[in-house]
């Protein structure tokens, strides 16, 4: 009888909920791995997994465009930059060390538990969500709505975003460009003379 009870309980769980919990059960251990893994490069690769599961959540929420751009920008772009930065900064040197600063552990765990409890309790007690039930069939395609908004009402933020990206691009090049002195040391003496006249 009890096993029958369990079966009916499982039958009530719908597909969306099941997929959600599968994705959550993948995302949480991967996120822990990103924070706690002793090997920094491995945690960089685990980050790809976290981003992929979050893209899966976006697909569950019918945000197809955002899910795909999540894979493109986060899963490939940002993690690629992070892994390259890890390889440039000799992460192997600190492989065996404890990833955490022991002095901060107590305070940090207190703060993170406090943040989660605050958010969760406020979500739980909230009752007047302004929910709207629209059947997903009557809605216009996701990407069409996004494109319309970006070109009309949100055109100005869109332009600002492009300026921000340009500024970030220039800033990153400026910051990561080797300094003139180290360039001169690396080059030949003849090149050095040319470089020197050019730079001054």
């Amino acid at each position: 009888m009890e096993s029958l009870n369990l079966l009916t309980a499982l039958a009530h769980v719908n597909v969306e909920q099941g997929f959600f919990y599968v994705l959550a059960a993948i995302a949480i251990p991967l996120a822990y791995g990103v924070v706690f893994d002793r090997n920094v490069i491995r945690s960089g690769f685990l980050l790809i997994g976290v981003f992929a599961t979050i893209a899966g959540l976006f697909f569950l929420l019918q945000a197809q465009f955002l899910g795909l751009s999540q894979i493109l920008i986060y899963g490939v772009g940002i993690t690629l930059v992070i892994v390259i930065a890890l390889m440039l900064t000799n992460a192997r040197q600190e492989t065996g060390m404890n990833p955490a600063l022991p002095a901060n552990v107590g305070l940090a765990s207190f703060v993170s538990v406090l943040v989660f409890t605050t958010i969760y309790l406020s979500l739980r007690s909230a009752e007047d969500w302004p929910l709207k039930n629209e059947s997903s069939l009557s809605l216009p395609p996701n990407i069409e709505m996004i494109g319309k908004h970006l070109m009309t009402y949100y055109a100005l933020p869109f332009e600002f975003a492009s300026i921000l990206l340009l500024a970030a691009l220039v800033g990153a090049v400026m910051l990561s460009k080797a300094e003139p002195a180290s360039l001169a040391n690396a080059g030949d003496e003849a090149e050095q003379a040319v470089d020197g006249t050019d730079r001054v």
Binding site: I28, V35, N98, A100
Partner: peptide, 13 residues
């Protein structure tokens, strides 16, 4: 995930 991120950001070496 946000709480895990806060912990990692505060503690990471």
């Amino acid at each position: 995930l946000f709480a895990i991120g806060i912990y990692g950001m505060t503690v990471s070496r």
